[in-house]
Design a binder for these strands. Structure first.
Length: 421
RNA sequence: GGCAGGUUGCCCGAGCGGCCAAUGGGAGCGGACUGUAAAUCCGUCGGCUUUGCCUUCGAAGGUUCGAAUCCUUCACCUGCCA
C-alpha cells in the first residue's frame, strides 16, 4: 500500500531541491502513511504554474499512500510573505475570502478525498483568527530569535529598501501552521517551493522547540528557462490555471512551445508518465527535436491534467486545423468553431465589417492603428490567406460553411468570427 | 536640518523654447529563415474620422505667437555635508 519507490521517483524527477534530511525523509516515507501538508496562499484569483508543481507533488505523495492536508492561507493571505521586489499591497478580507474559495476549488480535483488516506482541506484562518496577540507572542514568538530571522536572504535584501513588521512576521504564521497540524493531525512533513525554504524549516524548528517533536520538510525546485530566467510568464503574465484568466488553448500552446533543453525536465515535473516512457521521449527528442514529439506529449499531458481530456482533444483539433497547413474548410465549421473558442471568445457579427474592425473587435489588435499596421506589415490573414489591403472587407464567399471566418494575426494568434443572422 | 541633482512613452535613457509624438537601447509586435523553435536579418512600436487632428514628457498654475524644454508652488526620489 505504501510505494517505497516514491523518494527515488521524486529524486529522479528532480522534485527535491532541498531537504531537511534526505535519509530520514526516505525512511519515514517508507515506514508507513505519512501525513503531510502543502500550503497555498490566495494572492490571486487563480493558482498558476508554480503552484501546479506543488499540487502534482501532493498528488504523487497521495498516490504513493501518504495522506495530504492541503492548506489554503486564509490567514497568511491576509499578510503576504515577503518577496524581494518589495512590500506587498494588502488585500481586503473580502477579496482574500473569495480567493480562498477559488483556490480551494482548483486544488480539490487533483486529490482524492476518499479511502484510507483521504485528503483534508484546511484553512489556517481557523486557528489563527481566534488566537490572541498575547498567546501568539508568548507561545510562538518566543521561539523565534530575531537574529536568525534577519539572516534570511529575503529579509536581508529587503532591509535596505524596507520591510514592514507585518511581512517580517510572516514566517511565524506559516511555522505555526505546521505546528498546529503536527499537534492536531499528526502531520510530520511539509513541502513547498524552494523560495519557501525558510518558511518550511521555520516550522520544523518550531515543532522541535515547542514540542520536542521531529518533522520533515523538502522544497521543490524553482522551474526556470534555459537561460535561467523565471518560467511560466507569457505575454499575458503568469500561466494561470483558471480558464477564464488563461485560455486552455494558450495554456496548451505554452507547453507545446517548451524549449528543447527543458522538455525533459518539464515532463518529469509536470506529468505522471512513468520513467521509462519519459526516457524514451527524451531519446526520441534528442534524435529528432524538430518533430517535437516530447513537446506535443508534454502539452497533451499537462493540459489534460488541468483542463480535462475533452478540452485537450478540442485544442489539438484546433492546432491541427490552424497549423496543419491543410484546407481549413476540411475541418468543417462546427469543429473549427469549437476549436477556435478554446483560443478566445468567438466574435459574433451580423454583417462582416472590414479587416481593421475585425482585428480590433476580435481582440487580436488593441487599436485600429495597430490593426492597420498589422495589415501593412503583412501580418493579417483571413482563412490563412494574407490580407494586403487595409480596406479589405471579407465577403460571404470567404465563410466556412457560410458562417465562420478564421482570423489570424501574425504566426499564431487566431480568432473566430461567426456570422449570426 | 544644509547643499547639489533628479522625476520623459512598457522598461532604461537622450532631449533643455519652435525642425518633438519626442534620438538610442531593451522588451513587445510583424515579416524572412525554421520545427507553431533558438540564433540571425529586416520592419514596426500613443490614439483617431490619418497628406490632417487629438492626448502625452511627476502634479497644478504661469510666461510666450509657441514649452518636455523658462518661472512659481506642491509631491516623490537620489547624492554630498550635519
Amino acid at each position: 500500500m505504501i510505494d517505497t519507490g516514491l523518494v527515488d521517483d521524486l529524486e529522479w524527477r528532480g522534485l527535491i531541491a532541498h531537504s531537511t534530511d534526505r535519509d530520514a525523509l526516505r525512511e519515514a516515507l517508507s515506514a508507513g502513511s505519512v501525513r503531510f501538508y502543502v500550503g497555498f496562499d490566495p494572492t490571486a484569483p487563480s493558482l498558476h504554474m508554480g503552484n501546479l508543481v506543488q499540487i502534482l507533488t501532493a498528488r504523487r505523495l497521495q498516490q504513493a499512500g501518504h495522506t495530504p492536508f492541503a492548506l489554503v492561507g486564509g490567514a497568511t493571505g491576509m499578510i503576504g510573505d515577503p518577496k524581494e521586489s518589495g512590500e506587498r499591497v494588502l488585500n481586503s478580507a473580502e477579496t482574500v475570502r473569495e480567493w480562498v474559495q477559488r483556490v480551494r476549488g482548483q486544488i480539490e480535483p487533483f486529490l482524492s478525498f476518499e479511502g484510507p488516506n483521504a485528503a483534508t482541506m484546511v484553512n489556517n484562518l481557523d486557528w489563527t483568527q481566534p488566537m490572541s496577540t498575547i498567546d501568539f507572542l508568548r507561545d510562538i514568538g518566543k521561539h523565534f530569535p530575531v537574529n536568525r530571522m534577519l539572516a534570511r536572504d529575503v529579509v536581508r535584501t529587503r532591509l535596505e529598501a524596507g520591510i514592514s513588521y507585518t511581512e517580517f512576521s510572516y514566517v511565524l504564521l506559516q511555522s505555526m501552521d505546521f505546528l498546529n497540524l503536527f499537534r492536531d493531525h499528526g502531520v510530520t512533513l511539509q513541502f513547498g517551493g524552494s523560495d519557501q525554504w525558510g518558511n518550511l524549516t521555520g516550522g520544523v524548528e518550531l515543532i522541535r522547540r515547542a514540542e520536542g517533536g521531529h518533522a520533515h520538510a523538502f522544497a521543490t525546485p524553482l522551474v526556470t528557462k534555459a537561460d535561467g530566467t523565471k518560467y511560466g510568464k507569457t505575454e499575458g503574465g503568469a500561466l494561470w490555471l483558471d480558464p477564464e484568466m488563461m485560455s486552455p488553448y494558450g495554456f496548451y500552446q505554452f507547453w507545446l512551445n517548451a524549449e528543447d533543453e527543458k522538455v525533459g525536465e518539464l515532463l518529469r515535473i509536470f506529468t505522471f508518465l512513468p520513467r521509462a516512457e519519459i526516457e524514451a521521449l527524451e531519446a526520441e527528442h534528442a534524435e529528432a527535436p524538430f518533430r517535437r514529439t516530447a513537446q506535443r506529449r508534454l502539452a497533451e499531458e499537462v493540459t489534460t491534467l488541468v483542463h480535462g481530456a475533452e478540452e485537450t482533444a478540442r485544442i489539438q483539433a484546433a492546432s491541427a486545423a490552424l497549423f496543419g497547413g491543410g484546407e481549413l474548410r476540411d475541418a468543417g465549421a462546427a469543429t473549427l468553431r469549437a476549436a477556435l473558442e478554446t483560443a478566445r471568445p468567438l466574435l459574433r457579427v451580423e454583417t462582416l465589417p472590414g479587416i481593421v474592425d475585425l482585428l480590433v473587435e476580435s481582440g487580436l489588435c488593441a487599436s485600429k492603428g495597430e490593426a492597420r499596421r498589422a495589415v501593412a506589415e503583412g501580418g493579417a490573414y483571413v482563412n490563412n490567406v494574407r490580407v494586403e489591403d487595409v480596406e479589405h472587407v471579407p465577403s460571404s464567399d470567404d465563410l466556412v460553411d457560410g458562417r465562420l471566418l478564421v482570423l489570424r494575426r501574425g504566426k499564431k494568434n487566431f480568432a473566430g468570427v461567426e456570422l449570426v443572422s
